[in-house]
Computed example of a mutant assay.
Amino acid sequence: MARPKSEDKRLALLEAAKEAVAESGLGAATSLIAKKAGVAEGTLFRYFATKDELLNALYLHLKTGLGKMMMENYHPDASVKERVRTVWSGFIDWGLISPTGSKAMRQLAVSDKVTEETLQKVAQLYPELHELANACVTSEFFSCGQSAFADAIFFSLAETTMEFASRDPLEAGNYKTAGFEVMWRAMTKG
């Protein structure tokens, strides 16, 4: 009879995968991930049948935490600019709290490992965020007109903001505000 799976072990494997991907990229060995989690490599494959399954679970895990942070102060009735500002602030705050998570998510986001099914699950987690992103890209707000391009601009400016905010925590709020204003002006028509 197979032993029941533990949620603690599953989370430990996801945290270990986050660290390994942040440090070594998507080529991080499953043996390294298992070692970081304090389990045998065979145990990893009891929880995740393949490495790709693990990477997709990691992406979903990271996006869940990020989405929770971005939704903390989200008000659906606020103006588009204020909703985007809230998302921006939550994203920056999450990146400052979880730099390894941010780095791992960037690796996963540009890979071909994240499946369409996982992307759909992410969109369903926080539909307000998905709708806001689509509304911004397809409306008069973002002049670049393409979601992938808009995402790349957003993430590049966010990474720069996080880098400077982490170097000088006393000025983090000012960097977050300035980064948002640069992003907003760069991406809106006007």
Score class of each variant (00 low, 15 high):
residue 170 L to K: 07
residue 134 N to Y: 13
residue 23 E to K: 00
residue 131 E to L: 12
residue 118 T to F: 07
residue 112 D to N: 09
residue 128 E to F: 05
residue 130 H to T: 14
residue 95 G to L: 09
residue 90 G to I: 15
residue 61 H to R: 04
residue 9 K to L: 13
residue 101 G to K: 09
residue 18 K to G: 08
residue 147 S to W: 11
residue 35 K to R: 09
residue 103 K to P: 04
residue 47 Y to T: 02
residue 153 I to W: 02
residue 77 D to Y: 12
residue 4 P to F: 00
residue 59 Y to M: 05
residue 56 N to M: 10
residue 6 S to N: 07
residue 135 A to V: 11
residue 135 A to N: 00
residue 162 M to R: 06
residue 19 E to V: 07
residue 36 K to T: 03
residue 165 A to H: 03
residue 36 K to Q: 11
residue 85 R to E: 15
residue 102 S to M: 12
residue 109 A to S: 12
residue 117 E to Q: 11
residue 190 G to M: 06
residue 67 G to T: 11
residue 36 K to S: 04
residue 138 T to S: 10
residue 8 D to M: 04
residue 170 L to V: 01
residue 183 M to C: 07
residue 152 A to D: 11
residue 42 G to N: 05
residue 43 T to V: 09
residue 115 T to M: 01
residue 109 A to D: 15
residue 133 A to G: 10
residue 56 N to Q: 10
residue 1 M to G: 15
residue 47 Y to V: 03
residue 85 R to M: 12
residue 113 K to D: 10
residue 64 T to N: 04
residue 82 E to M: 04
residue 129 L to H: 03
residue 78 A to H: 11
residue 78 A to D: 15
residue 133 A to D: 03
residue 125 L to F: 12
residue 113 K to S: 05
residue 159 E to M: 08
residue 17 A to I: 04
residue 68 K to H: 14
residue 134 N to A: 14
residue 27 G to K: 00
residue 71 M to I: 13
residue 63 K to Y: 12
residue 77 D to R: 12
residue 2 A to F: 02
residue 36 K to A: 04
residue 97 I to E: 08
residue 115 T to W: 04
residue 121 K to F: 03
residue 84 V to S: 00
residue 101 G to C: 10
residue 113 K to Q: 07
residue 143 S to K: 07
residue 96 L to Q: 07
residue 168 D to G: 00
residue 135 A to C: 03
residue 103 K to V: 11
residue 12 A to S: 09
residue 153 I to G: 04
residue 1 M to V: 08
residue 164 F to I: 13
residue 161 T to F: 02
residue 89 S to C: 08
residue 169 P to F: 15
residue 109 A to N: 10
residue 57 A to V: 05
residue 106 R to Q: 14
residue 148 A to T: 09
residue 115 T to K: 08
residue 65 G to A: 03
residue 99 P to D: 09
residue 95 G to K: 04
residue 97 I to G: 00
residue 29 A to Q: 07
residue 152 A to G: 10
residue 79 S to Q: 06
residue 52 D to H: 03
residue 27 G to Q: 05
residue 80 V to K: 00
residue 88 W to P: 10
